[in-house]
């Protein structure tokens, strides 16, 4: 009798946990569909694919929201319409492309420059459909593969997206003209501190001499190291990294700030 009671009790406990887990929101996580710039997609297909990228691989919804203020980024409701009037001489698609590839080039008032350039995360095809989806939020979808090719300089031979396991994402972002050559050799530590406190402390310690939650201590980092690590997510030759992490994205838009960062970190 006791054995039966123990069995029933066990079923009851296990059943309770199963019931609870089944009563919470249920979501399946599917892999992002591979999207080639060469693929002939209808407007609806592009929007649908873009929405999927938005909520999965792009992880946009973690910061942005649609119809309300996001946790860290602005509300994207109506962005398809607003995009055309954000910057002078920028069409909606040009602005949205820039927002994805160089997010800090234009900042909506009240928001920090914390979004990583999406060229390091999304393939050109995914960038295209994401722009199409964003355009569909109040605007007209007119993005074409050529628009993406022009901005991302994707070679024709690389356009057909192959599995990421075989080759890296076929993206070569437009080379950033390094402004450091024309900058004075000594930067402004105040400007450097402002950049550091705005961006770097998300991972590094507010005191650069100390290790941060994710990034190591970086006080005294050389200009060569900063250029390699910050702009290209690489290390100078023969440099021994303090942590074997791969999470810091390249931030090519900081090319003009490297000299200031170097000065601040001295």
């Amino acid at each position: 009798m006791n054995t039966l009671k123990v069995i029933l009790f066990t079923f009851l406990v296990v059943g309770f946990y199963s019931f609870y887990a089944n009563s919470i929101p249920q979501t399946e996580s599917h892999p992002p569909k591979k999207i080639s710039l060469n693929a002939k997609l209808s407007e609806d297909e592009m929007i649908e694919a873009g929405e999927r990228v938005y909520s999965t691989k792009g992880t946009c919804g973690i910061c942005h929201a649609i119809g309300r203020k996001g946790s860290r980024g602005p509300d994207l409701n109506g962005v398809g319409l607003r995009a055309a009037s954000r910057k002078a001489d920028f069409s909606a698609k040009a602005y949205l492309l820039e927002s994805l590839l160089k997010p800090s080039a234009y900042l909506v008032e009240g928001y920090a420059p914390m979004m990583p350039p999406m060229a390091s995360i999304l393939t050109p095809g995914e960038v295209m459909v994401t722009v199409a989806y964003l355009q569909s939020l109040g605007g007209k979808v007119d993005i074409t593969p050529d628009d993406v090719r022009a901005v991302m300089q994707v070679k024709a031979s690389q356009v057909s997206v192959v599995p990421e396991t075989v080759s890296p994402a076929p993206v070569t972002e437009k080379p950033v003209v390094s402004a450091t050559a024309s900058e004075p050799q000594l930067g402004d530590p105040v400007k450097g501190k402002a950049v550091y406190n705005t961006l770097c402390i998300a991972c590094h310690n507010p005191d650069p001499a100390l290790a941060g939650a994710i990034g190591p201590e970086i006080k005294g980092a050389s200009r060569d190291l900063l250029e390699a690590r910050v702009l290209r997510a690489e290390y100078p030759q023969a440099y021994q990294p303090k942590r074997d992490t791969k999470m810091m994205p390249p931030m090519a838009h900081l090319a003009n700030d490297i000299v200031h960062l170097t000065e601040f970190l001295k």
């Binding site: 079923f11 296990v14 946990y17 199963s18 249920q26 399946e28 892999p31 599995p163 396991t165």
Partner: peptide, 26 residues
């Protein structure tokens, strides 16, 4: 490094996962 290209290449819902866990526990 190596992608899952099988029909199961997606993460199931937590409810489904919980049911499988329950079966394993039993």
């Amino acid at each position: 490094v190596m992608e899952d290209t099988s029909v199961d290449a997606f993460a199931p819902t937590l409810g489904f996962a919980a049911n499988v866990v329950s079966v394993c526990v039993l």
